[in-house]
């Protein structure tokens, strides 16, 4: 494993390895720039099935099915996609089905595209109103340990958990 101090290290390496270690078999996503490297690693990995969605709520439903069928999955989405999931998340709460999701933020740190701002600013309050446990992380080196903690909370403590990855890490849409 490349040292975290190395210039070539990217958090997605460790998170992908973590996914393997904890037995993630289904990776559902709507593509996003901030998650691109992680998506590439997951797509290239034959031990997990990557599924592209037309809208993020499909992914919440798929994760419910994965768990019902005895597999672990992860939902990867941009913050805008959180706004498409709120009603479907009620199923996870009602049935207490584990959900691990990674949310790549837009509309916050250094955002230059105004249309992203309203949903970006609503993302965490909307998740919390939907009773999803939120772990916000804004340093790249802390992403893997945060995902690891979230996975335990999700799969061992049967909770819906979102790791919200700051735009400060991805830099997406904040370079003008």
């Amino acid at each position: 494993m490349v040292s975290k101090k190395s210039k070539t290290w990217h958090w997605s390496q460790d998170v992908h390895q973590l996914f393997k270690k904890i037995g993630i078999k289904q990776v559902a996503y709507v593509p996003d720039g901030g998650l691109a490297k992680l998506l590439e690693r997951c797509q290239a990995d034959k031990s997990m099935r990557s599924v592209v969605l037309t809208t993020e709520e499909e992914g919440v439903a798929q994760m419910a099915g994965a768990w019902l069928g005895g597999q672990r999955g992860v939902l990867l989405t941009q913050s805008g996609g959180v706004g498409n999931c709120i009603n479907m998340l009620s199923m996870m709460q009602e049935c207490r089905i584990p959900l691990l999701s990674l949310v790549s933020m837009r509309g916050e740190w250094g955002e230059t595209f105004p249309w992203q701002v309203p949903m970006g600013q609503s993302t965490i309050p909307a998740l919390e109103a939907a009773k999803v446990i939120v772990h916000h992380v804004d340093q790249a080196e802390k992403v893997p340990e945060t995902v690891q903690a979230a996975a335990k909370l999700a799969f061992d403590a049967n909770r819906a958990v979102a790791v919200v990855i700051s735009q400060r890490i991805s830099g997406s849409g904040s370079k003008g």
């Binding site: 805008g80 996609g81 959180v82 709120i86 009603n87 009620s90 249309w115 992203q116 949903m119 609503s122």
Partner: peptide, 16 residues
């Protein structure tokens, strides 16, 4: 009320 959970992202447009 359940439908409110389906509109959150689209409300971003009306807000913006």
């Amino acid at each position: 009320s359940s439908g409110v959970g389906n509109v959150i992202n689209m409300l971003g447009m009306a807000n913006e």
